[in-house]
Design a protein around this nucleic acid. Structure first.
Lengths: 364, 364
DNA sequence: AGAGAGCGTTGGACCGTTCCAATCGACGCG
DNA sequence: CGCGTCGATTGGAACGGTCCAACGCTCTCT
């Protein structure tokens, strides 16, 4: 017995019981004792080493099975000095595209035997927790930030200590931190050019707030300008909500409040910041007696399942979130291999999903 | 320099090369050395022990700060034999009510200094992973299963080893495993009685599949029967999708295909299995020229944000998912205190959210 | 026959923390 | 002055694994 310094008066029970009982889960030593081998050999079997005789391997496996032994990840990672875990910080799990990103992340990470530890930044922060600190204490091997981050405090510190990738956001540009984001400007151009291609000239954009809203607006304006339609571009501000989209559309499409605007000036197409505000615009259009798409074409963004409802059936820009996740995972793996590589930034090109909410403009 | 065990020939760069040593994160010993105390004293400070002199405490805190020390959770939990972590198994993160449940869970768990480790069962299973095994290896202190579980293999085994609670599902009844679920039958009764209360008599139900669908159908039938309307109850099967709801509604509301059905027999109200199939029914109604709610009343289920779209504005049953999460957390905490208590099952009562999709029936 | 190689197996050091018993110095008391 | 008390501090043994050097055994080669 290697552990000879055990108390002599300890009862020689089956399990080397600690004082008041409470049977602990079996350890590698328990398995070794049961199989009649050393713990080192059990360790070798666990690692699938080829240099173990078949007889002993069987004995060990049997013992593991009988005792229901499960290796202790904490002990393992303590000596390995890596956890095979990456922290994933989410921000609003209500947002469905997160799931796509996670899905993409997962596909690559699992192939590399890494598990994901997810935290909802919103929940944690509300409780005054600092996710960055927690992830560091857990010694995650890497960090993925998905989406926008209300306060980047702590992130910078975490990022300089462990491989970090930002996915789905352009925002915090940090020294050794890669970034994979949707090319919002490109997506907005796609949507706008689709409308222009149909023959629309007077096209409105219902804008969103924040950096994302700005990029999409910029894409819209760029497309209009490069087709010589800058004079026909209208931007009405929204807030990304249905209500905001509704109100913006009423301002765009309703009876002119100033004497300046004539009926012919009414936009024949609207490109909205996102699907939800597009739905608001749709409501407004119908209330105003405009048929979509005959009288008004609509394009949304994000290709959420709202757009897929037959009742709405919106054209929408699909930002390939799954691809964002995959690429982010790729970046993270690369960075785990070479932590000091310069930060890389890449954009993923979205695609336009065509359904039934656009058509060529009617007779002007 | 404090890190004196560094190879003498290693270049003294800002970032020490990863070559042989790879600077490890500071440990409690490093902090102790820097503060000029023993590691035990550092440990005491970390635990906020009152029996440490102020001078030394300050020295230790300063050292921690300067080195950017973060305690190693693995080492800590190894000796503590608990991780202060509960595993949360999700199944389809696309489903928004999960988030509510998580939110509810989180509120209580964080108050008890427990963190949540989330796994998406769908993702894991696809990769041939066994979440139950993983959670056991991580030695989580408890397990929460949220929603339905495709295969319960492994769960039974996990549940008998660690405190487990099922949230949001009636399904696997296991020995020492509590269960907190939505009272679907009650919710369906609420919806049906609301319609009955408005004066509807001929009411249809678009059913869903699986155990949940069955419970909601049963609630519908019970309510109809207890108001003497069993003869007027119609159940048309759907599949929980928009398409299924649409087709079911067409069968219910469209021109009678058999000579038996007369126009007066057409239902004046439909209670759908969920919001999405309710939206399908809404589409069908509008295509058939029926006005909602004047000609047809609709009630959905789950109170998703679909129901909140002004365009749809559906009455819907709101199963208090946040409350489900809270109660599940409560159960888990109780069970962690007394693991051998008998299994408890509780149902959370839903409420009907009234919007604009119902009205008294028109003249018959 | 002895040396060496190769294979299967083993003891022990170590990972970074907590906890306990022991130590140390200062102090009050008989 | 020696002794017990008390509070602050410390060394060392766990915790449950991995890994490495070393070991014994069999086999082969010279």
């Amino acid at each position: 017995m290697e552990r000879s310094n055990k108390r002599a008066e300890a009862p020689p029970g089956e399990r080397p019981g600690t004082r008041p009982g409470a049977d602990r889960p079996p350890t590698i030593r328990g398995v070794a004792a049961r199989a009649g081998v050393s713990k080192s050999l059990v360790s070798l079997v666990l690692q699938g080493s080829p240099r173990v005789s078949d007889a002993k391997r069987q004995a060990v496996l049997a013992a593991i099975d009988e005792l229901g032994y499960r290796p202790n990840a904490a002990a393992r990672s303590l000596v390995a000095r890596r956890t095979r875990t990456v922290g994933v910080l989410l921000n609003d799990m209500r947002n469905p595209w997160f799931v796509e990103v996670l899905d993409g992340l997962n596909s690559l990470l699992q192939a590399h035997d890494l598990r994901m530890l997810m935290a909802d930044g919103r929940l944690d922060r509300r409780a005054g927790h600092d996710f960055a600190r927690t992830f560091q204490e857990l010694r995650v091997d890497g960090l993925v930030v998905v989406g926008t981050l209300p306060d980047t405090t702590g992130l910078a510190e975490a990022a300089e200590r462990l491989p970090t990738v930002i996915a789905g956001n352009h925002e915090p540009r940090l020294p050794h931190t890669d970034l994979v984001a949707n090319d919002d400007e490109h997506g907005a151009r796609l949507a706008t050019e689709h409308l222009i291609g149909l023959g629309h000239r007077r096209i409105a954009h219902i804008a969103g707030q924040g950096p994302v809203g700005e990029r999409r607006r910029r894409g819209f304006e760029t497309a209009m300008r490069s087709h010589g339609l800058a004079a026909h571009a209208v931007v009405e501000s929204g807030d990304g909500t249905e209500e905001g989209g509704y109100r913006a559309a009423v301002r765009l499409l309703g009876p002119p409040r100033t004497t300046r605007r004539t009926p012919t000036e009414r936009p024949t197409a609207v490109f909205a910041f996102n699907d939800i505000s597009c739905v608001g615009a749709l409501s407004a259009a119908q209330e105003l007696g405009l048929d979509v798409p005959a009288d008004l074409s609509l394009v949304g963004y994000d290709n959420t399942y709202l757009a897929r409802i037959r009742h709405l059936w919106l054209n929408s820009v699909n930002n390939a979130s799954h691809e964002v996740g995959r690429r982010a995972a790729r970046c993270l793996l690369d960075r785990m291999a070479r932590p000091d590589a310069p930060a890389g930034h890449q954009l993923v090109a979205p695609a336009l999903e065509i359904r039934g909410s656009t058509a060529p403009p009617g007779a002007v």
